[in-house]
């Protein structure tokens, strides 16, 4: 049984198909990045999974059951949705105490969870004075409170500063790889999660477009090279003779497929042209993601 199991999930808001037949699973001990541009259906998927939104079709299970049927939801799942779900006049510790009380957890969990996310010194401060990053941390504290084995985080890096993002990465890795939790984290910024996730699911306009392990999606084998020289008229035909497929780009550089970087270097040396740039273009994952983002924006 997978920790999270989404199967043929569909949800429309009026005429808009927000989620359209999405299926994927998340296993214990792994981090899955749920990626897509804004409005792709990520949040709706997560809210269906958490029982906040009723799906039109398909199933979304946590530990094999729909979320509303979990006996102790906070002990099974830690969820962080937007960072705005707090009463501004309530203190951080009181927000967590309410969760503890309602979930029947010991009250000291509130202080422990604040400690864990580094908010212990503002425990008695009202949330209205909190920055976005502090709210994200407070949300995360709420998710940790019941010692769950499954984490569902919607854009947790939003509003975090670079050091906060660094901290979040380490924290998610700790949860998944050391404590064996299943982590599902959504983001519209690939770079935020690229270094953290084990698996990637990409969604656009409500439909799954790509999924696999990070290794599968970032394999560089067929990524083209970008070659710029002072004499493309000489270099281009020479590279073609060496077996490459050459495509001149608008900015005067050449896009070369089918040749390894060292082979290009040899051709450059043989032709005696001055080389100004030789780089591997974006990986498959980056390219897919960028294409999707550009398409929809």
């Amino acid at each position: 049984m997978s920790a999270i199991e989404i199967s043929q999930l569909a949800k429309s808001f009026g005429p808009v198909k927000a989620v359209d037949g999405v299926s994927f699973t998340v296993e214990a001990g792994t981090i899955t990045g749920y990626l897509g541009p804004n409005g792709a259906g990520k949040t709706t998927t997560l809210r269906c999974l958490l029982g906040l939104v009723t799906a039109d079709a398909g199933t979304a299970l946590v530990n094999g059951v729909p979320y509303p049927q979990l006996k102790q939801p906070l002990a099974a799942v830690g969820a962080v949705l937007e960072a705005t779900n707090f009463h501004p006049g309530r203190t951080a510790i009181n927000h967590l105490r309410i969760l503890c009380t309602a979930a029947g957890l010991p009250q000291q969990r509130a202080a422990e969870a604040l400690e864990q996310v580094g908010l212990a010194d503002v425990a008695s401060k009202r949330v209205s004075g909190f920055s976005m990053g502090m709210r994200q941390r407070l949300g995360l504290a709420g998710a940790l409170i019941g010692h769950p084995e499954v984490f569902i985080l919607d854009e947790p890096a939003n509003g975090l500063d670079p050091s906060g993002i660094q901290w979040l990465r380490g924290f998610l890795k700790h949860l998944a790889h050391e404590r064996g939790a299943a982590v599902l984290v959504s983001s519209h910024v690939l770079a935020e999660v690229e270094q953290t996730v084990d698996n990637v699911v990409i969604i656009a306009k409500g439909r799954l477009v790509r999924q696999g392990t990070l290794a599968e999606l970032t394999r560089n084998g067929d990524a083209p090279l970008r070659v710029r020289s002072l004499d493309p008229q000489t270099l281009g035909p020479a590279l073609e003779r060496a077996g490459g497929a050459v495509e001149p780009l608008d900015d005067g550089a050449l896009r070369v497929r089918g040749l390894a970087a060292e082979r290009v270097g040899e051709v450059v040396l043989a032709e005696q042209v001055v080389l100004t740039e030789l780089v591997q273009e974006r990986t498959d994952l980056q390219r897919v993601f960028l294409e999707l983002t550009e398409e929809t924006s």
Partner: peptide, 18 residues
């Protein structure tokens, strides 16, 4: 209605889905 105004209803319903 405060729960809906400040969206605390989300964490309320996550804690008590029924």
């Amino acid at each position: 209605t405060t729960e809906f105004r400040y969206q605390t209803i989300t964490s309320t319903f996550l804690t008590t889905p029924r």
